[in-house]
């Protein structure tokens, strides 16, 4: 199939589904990498360790499974839904043998942004099939007090939105 008809199909799909299926765009020669591969260590158990921050991440968004994070749909919850989801997960066996998962704060979540790429602004070798979603942080916003922080992984912006809006979740834990 020609690339032209491929793009037409993708374009139609994105229009129909409303999801960003646009291909990732990376400027590897003209923008410095912010999340180089050597920072990360992937494990068979579905976790990724970032040597720079000392944080362990779940490779897939919540709701998504599979070795390449290509099975299932991401869970989307309000900010309160996100805050109560995580203790429930930890109480029910956790993930990969750990039951001390957290919702990342806005600074932690921002460390996953790959600034030389968009759609998504993530290193998709490390975080395979990462979609261009909005991901909640655990940080409430100070000025508009019905907002909390999230990262928009379509372009990597750290910004904020109303707490009643549903967004996806990516869990983190401290390495002891």
């Amino acid at each position: 199939m020609s690339t032209k008809s491929n793009s037409l199909v993708l374009l139609l799909l994105s229009l129909l589904s409303g999801f960003a299926l646009a291909e990732q765009n990376c400027q590897t020669d003209t923008i410095a990498a912010s999340t180089p591969l050597e920072r990360f260590k992937q494990s068979e158990d579905g976790t990724v360790v970032d040597a720079d921050t000392g944080l362990m991440w779940r490779e897939c968004l919540e709701g998504v499974t599979g070795a390449s994070c290509d099975e299932g749909e991401p869970v989307a919850l309000t900010w309160a839904g996100a805050l109560t989801y995580v203790p429930t997960l930890n109480a029910n066996g956790g993930f990969a043998g750990y039951s001390d998962w957290r919702l990342p704060n806005i600074r932690e979540l921002s460390t996953l942004v790959e600034l030389q790429c968009s759609n998504p602004a993530m290193n998709v070798v490390v975080f395979e099939n990462a979609p261009s979603t909005h991901v909640w942080a655990s940080s409430p916003y100070h000025f508009y007090t019905h907002y909390s922080w999230y990262v928009d992984f379509s372009n990597g912006a750290a910004t904020y939105d109303e707490r009643i809006v549903s967004k996806t979740l990516r869990l983190v834990r401290d390495i002891k």
Binding site: T53, T78, W79, A80, L83, N105, I106, R107, E108, T111, S139, P140, Y141, H142, T145, H146, S148, E162, R163, I164
Partner: peptide, 16 residues
């Protein structure tokens, strides 16, 4: 990494 400086909690659906 610095911490965030947030030492206060947020209510739901609004207020801090």
């Amino acid at each position: 990494l610095n911490d965030t400086g947030i030492t206060w909690g947020g209510n739901y659906p609004k207020d801090i």
